[in-house]
């Protein structure tokens, strides 16, 4: 790993100030960025650690939503949303492995927007709001393609606010070596609306399967999507599975999710 200047601010304001330089890189739990830097795919001159910022940590009620600080680890989210939002707790508690969950954070995962990460599906499927140091962004506008988001240079995810659906579930089909989703689907039922978010499948990153959402709003059963199909054209195709396989998995995992909830 190339050396860098290490700074560890204790407030969001100080972190934003430290990120003003061109070659500064924020790091939260580092469970993606550290291996990336070891492989020399990233070599920042200044590394701004976000792990000592207390105002970015914790889980609490915020009206009828759940506020989760961007620096909150997966392990903490899994533990502290177990009663208030079990589907999100289950998602957080299955990311990577226990040691990864001790360090990795929700803000880091969402800012990185890996096309196979779990949290983007949870945030988009829940219709969450991404809170940054300067604004609030709806999840629908935040995720903009593989590793792309609405974040500007030097902007950090300070919190994520989740509305709590009547019922929801995260169905993950893992790629067994990496433990990342090969394809995973987050289905949330809000009574009058249904949201279906898919990760791991598309080369555009996380997306909403709106055709399935419409079908499920009228008839919340696994049969409602059996006549639908997902185009394989934009799907990731690699040694772990073809685009057609991921397209089929999108449908099957959606059906399994609905069957488990219905």
């Amino acid at each position: 790993m190339q050396n860098f200047e290490f700074v560890r601010p204790t407030s969001v304001a100080d972190a934003v100030a430290a990120l003003k330089g061109d070659e500064a890189q924020p790091m939260s739990g580092g469970q993606t960025l550290m291996p990336t830097m070891k492989a020399r795919l990233a070599a920042p001159e200044i590394l701004v650690s976000l792990t000592a910022i207390d105002e970015m940590k914790g889980v609490r009620k915020d009206g009828d939503q759940i506020w989760i600080g961007g620096g909150t680890t997966h392990a903490t989210v899994a533990r502290e949303t177990a009663e208030s939002y079990p589907a999100l707790s289950s998602l957080a508690g299955r990311i990577g492995d226990p040691s990864v969950r001790s360090r990795g954070t929700i803000g880091g995962s969402i800012a990185n927007n890996d096309p196979s990460a779990c949290y983007p599906a949870g945030a988009l499927g829940s219709g969450a709001t991404i809170v940054t140091d300067r604004r609030e962004i709806a999840a629908d506008d935040f995720f903009q393609g593989m590793f792309m988001s609405a974040l500007d240079e030097g902007e950090i995810v300070t919190a994520v606010k989740f509305p709590v659906p009547q019922k929801a579930i995260y169905q993950k089909f893992i790629q067994p070596a990496s433990r990342f989703p090969l394809t995973a689907v987050f289905v949330a039922h809000f009574g009058d609306t249904v949201r279906v978010a898919v990760t791991g499948a598309s080369s555009d990153g996380v997306f909403r399967w709106t055709e399935a959402e419409e079908a499920l709003q009228g008839n919340f059963s696994a049969d409602a999507v059996s006549g639908l199909s997902v185009s394989a054209a934009m799907m990731i195709s690699d040694l772990h599975g073809s685009g057609a396989y991921r397209a089929q998995l999108t449908k099957v995992m959606t059906q399994r999710a609905v069957a488990a909830l219905a």
Binding site: R8, G30, Q31, M34, S49, V100, S102, R103
Partner: peptide
């Protein structure tokens, strides 16, 4: 492995398991 996959380097940091090859020493201050 030094690539965050094998777990031979697991230690506890503030009581939680952590891969010591995926955490900076400066973060342990």
């Amino acid at each position: 492995c030094d690539t965050t996959q094998c777990g031979a380097c697991v230690v506890h940091v503030n009581g939680e398991p952590v891969k010591a090859c995926a955490m900076l020493a400066a973060e342990a201050d």
